[in-house]
Design a protein around this nucleic acid. Structure first.
Lengths: 361, 361
DNA sequence: ATGAAAGCGCTAACAA
DNA sequence: TTGTTAGCGCTTTCAT
């Protein structure tokens, strides 16, 4: 049976109110000695506050809900981690619910969370926009990170796609390329439009004419990158560099170039996007623009905290910039290659020492 | 302001007790008509139960804690998803806490969770074993999935490593290979020992003598697979097939073979382990043994639920079997290659229809 | 079949 | 500076 505030009060010979005040650094004055004694006794008795009782009293609980379609998506995972890290610093728990793209599920999740007096909800990479009614009813504070933005919910965090497109293409231009192909993402995506805009503007700023023939589209899979790259490489005047809208299509581009007997990165330079694991282990390793998911998660948590404190009540759309990671695929100087031995992680080192019963595989 | 049971009772002209009974399908008899009326009114008023109040009363909350080192590790993510899915079916929320390999953090996490009247904790891939005191103090029910097993906590779920090793090597033997190299994981890991045992037993069962020269070790990185594969391929009598303890080292093996001008999979067959994303996009795609993380997560949730119902009180170590996925790297027949176009996921299809404001990238 | 009321652990308004 | 007490929303015992 857990120790309660009452038991502490009896042990200390004071009232529960005094104990509560001492334990919570209340504004209400408490004698310093008494306070210390209470703290000691609480410690000795192994007292833990009952958050449930506290929440019932306060009509709010230190839990934030994260609703996503599937935490298993690598981007979502990183966003969730960013949120958790930021909120942990403020003492919040995170409840994560997957909806598997089912708006009905999402509605139920919102209801359930409301029943738990959850203070706010972050929607992370959930690509549908039907659950708004439920949200309005329960008028929770909420933030949307990297997803569709329903009307009337003005607090969101997204990556700066235009900037990312500029970063990638600028790098190729700086390396001397003038004829640069672009394998864009699906045609009507926000990200695709923005990155294409970045591609166009940076070309223009460098006095390079935009050639529509150099733009292909794919839906973010290796094979589609392969097909698109083949089209580009078979143009009468093929590009000397290709920017792909994600690392998987960049890998498809590598395969296409290999099949044509091109030498990477002399005959063809490639820049990817996302900085997924594949970018660090492909041959050549991929120069790529990061999709700053962790930072986006942190920013969304930060924004939610501001909302909970009734700051930042006006509409806010925060854009997070990614960065360019230079690896081998453009031939630029780099130290980050597959043949460089990796420094073992903290976990690895621990495992090496304590692996007797270990099941890591 | 959320609707309470009191408001429903007033609207229905009955006592709160009756409402509570009606709402909870209580054993206590309630007039059928009255019950229906209460249900209707609750529905109309938009009543949601306040879980916090309910938990305070019941002295337990429908929340399960998941403690892991880092949810960002792909295996951990899948385990967590498996847990969530299984527990969702029973109406539990999951709170996920990352400890970043810090045992102090883990202890604090356990304390915090206890304060939330959490019913049980699942430790998923946390590779240290210091937090046991805290656990004992709070005597929560707990299950360990794919991690170190502290003494005295007998409920665990792990992959069947021996079986996995047998699966991989058996496949190679069936394809006619007699000289099979093995790039094992770090030497003192449980998984390494078990898989090596699988390798040895299946060889023996097929009348193939064990040759220690065919076994190398690496710490699960591409580069270490590359180095180990080179050693094996430079033996006086090199293997015709190599089994690598994870997909990354299998990729290193592909690179080593390529650098030696070997043709995959005619000159060298390769089997990996884990079925990570890379296995589906490498060239050749990797035949691999799955690490059944999702299923392990489900099983651990199942086990915890049994514990909470006071079933399964005796010691239990559940082993989950992976399966062999046949792709290109052994030359066995397969339909699963990189050039096969992928069927768009449900999410993808949705996005194609609703991508106006989409930020996917 | 229904209701009244106690009480889960805590905080805060009010009293002393 | 400390104590007393009401009450958060709910379930359940006891009474009717």
């Amino acid at each position: 049976m857990p120790v309660t505030i009452r038991q502490v009060s009896e042990a200390a010979g004071v009232s529960v109110a005094t104990v509560s005040r001492a334990l919570n650094d209340s504004d209400h004055p408490v004698n310093a000695e008494t306070k210390q004694r209470i703290l000691d006794i609480a410690e000795k008795l192994g007292y833990h506050p009952n958050h449930i009782a506290r929440s019932l009293r306060a009509d709010r609980s230190p839990i934030i809900g994260i609703i996503c379609d599937d935490i298993t998506s690598p981007f979502t995972t990183m966003i969730v981690r960013g949120i958790q890290d930021r909120l942990k610093a403020d003492g919040y728990f995170c409840v994560v619910i997957n909806t598997d793209w089912d708006p009905i599920d999402e509605q139920r999740a919102i209801k359930d969370m409301a029943g738990y007096l959850i203070e706010g909800i972050i929607f992370a990479e959930t690509f549908h926009q039907f659950a708004s009614d439920e949200l309005n009813v329960n008028d929770k504070k909420c933030v949307f990170v990297h997803r569709l933005f329903p009307k009337g919910f003005p607090h969101s965090v997204i990556p700066d796609e235009l900037y990312g497109g500029r970063l990638a293409v600028n790098h190729l231009i700086q390396l001397g390329h003038r004829r640069i192909g672009y394998i864009n993402g699906s045609e009507d995506y926000y990200s695709s439009e923005e990155r294409l805009l970045g591609y166009k503007t940076i070309l223009k700023e460098n006095g390079i004419a935009f050639d529509p023939a150099l733009v292909e589209y794919g839906h973010f899979e290796v094979e589609q990158g392969y097909v698109a790259a083949n089209k580009l490489l078979e143009l009468p005047e093929p590009p000397t560099a290709i920017f792909a809208a994600n690392d998987l299509m960049a890998l498809g581009t590598i395969y296409a170039a290999q099949d044509k007997g091109l030498h990477l990165s002399d005959d063809l330079a490639i820049v990817g996007y996302d900085n997924q694991r594949i970018a660090t282990i492909s041959r050549p390793t991929l120069t790529t623009v990061t999709l700053p998911c962790f930072e986006m998660g942190q920013a969304s948590a930060e924004l939610l905290l501001a909302l909970l404190n009734n700051e930042a009540t006006d509409s806010q759309e925060i854009k997070i910039k990614g960065e360019l990671l230079i690896r081998e695929s453009c031939g630029a100087k780099t130290k980050d290659t597959v043949s460089a031995p990796k420094k073992p992680s903290r976990a690895d080192r621990f495992n090496l020492l304590n692996a007797q019963n270990d099941t890591k595989g």
